[in-house]
Design a protein around this nucleic acid. Sequence first.
DNA 1: CCGATACTTCAGAAATTTCTGAAAAGTCGG
DNA 2: CCGACTTTTCAGAAATTTCTGAAGTATCGG
Lengths: 152, 152
Amino acid sequence: MNDRHEQWQAAERLALTLIEGGLQRMSARTLAVFLFTDQESVTAGEIADRLEASAGSVSGAIKSLLTVGLIERLPAPGSRREHYRLRDDAWATLFTSQNTVIQAMLQAAAAGIAATETGDPAHQRLTQMRAFYAFLLGELPALLNRWHQQNT
Amino acid sequence: MNDRHEQWQAAERLALTLIEGGLQRMSARTLAVFLFTDQESVTAGEIADRLEASAGSVSGAIKSLLTVGLIERLPAPGSRREHYRLRDDAWATLFTSQNTVIQAMLQAAAAGIAATETGDPAHQRLTQMRAFYAFLLGELPALLNRWHQQNT
DNA sequence: CCGATACTTCAGAAATTTCTGAAAAGTCGG
DNA sequence: CCGACTTTTCAGAAATTTCTGAAGTATCGG
């Protein structure tokens, strides 16, 4: 129990969940490695070995995880290899990034409202849609504040 | 301005946003028709005409939208065709359904915690992950309550 | 009951996404 | 600067997702 094999299985299952959450396959598997590694930081080569994936696809995954702010590149400790690690606020960041979709919904609804006449059934539906996403967008900053305070 | 063509464009753009949000392509386009139609309800055939898609793919999209509770089948008004319409609480429903992913994340983190030793770096990371998603899951019911109250 | 119309299912086609492998580019120690 | 090693890029391959079209099923009016 609690051996490496069991951890590996848990990591792969977690990767599948991350894919559900919208990450791409290799990004999700890479993120799982960052979560489950024993070490403080990992290199691209180590990830490729662990996942039995090509250096190319790992490179792409790291780039995308860096872009959304889930991992960070560490000040190189004199080594030739780049070291990366999971960022402290990774999960809040992931949640926030997914909320850009909410903003897009809001804007799409507004565009629809502008394109329809007041009183149109479509106009009413779109107004309801906009109201919901406006509400959500308004609530989220306070939500994340509560998290950061509780998590201090 | 405010003509059918402009509305159609807005509908297609909204569909793209819905796809971003995780819906499948045809489900998203179908949902956009439900939003932008002039009528109170629409039939599968009307949707297929509007989207220039096959009856088969529309059937699949309707089935999936029914399953997640975004649309509802109307009591048939003596017609041979089934009529559907957007449900009132569609957006809150869509939001909620996306939150099943949060629950899955929570469980995946818990599984990882169980598979690692206390004090392991991985154990610590997974504990942080679980804390965040537990927090989120705890906040969401209250969030939706506030919406329903404000929206009364 | 029967004919006509509408809906569903599903195998295969089409399109898209994702991964790999090899070549190019970058970086560090010496 | 050179040579060894690592990372990035990108064209094509592989895998997956998604759509269509046709056959089958269901339902309604007559």
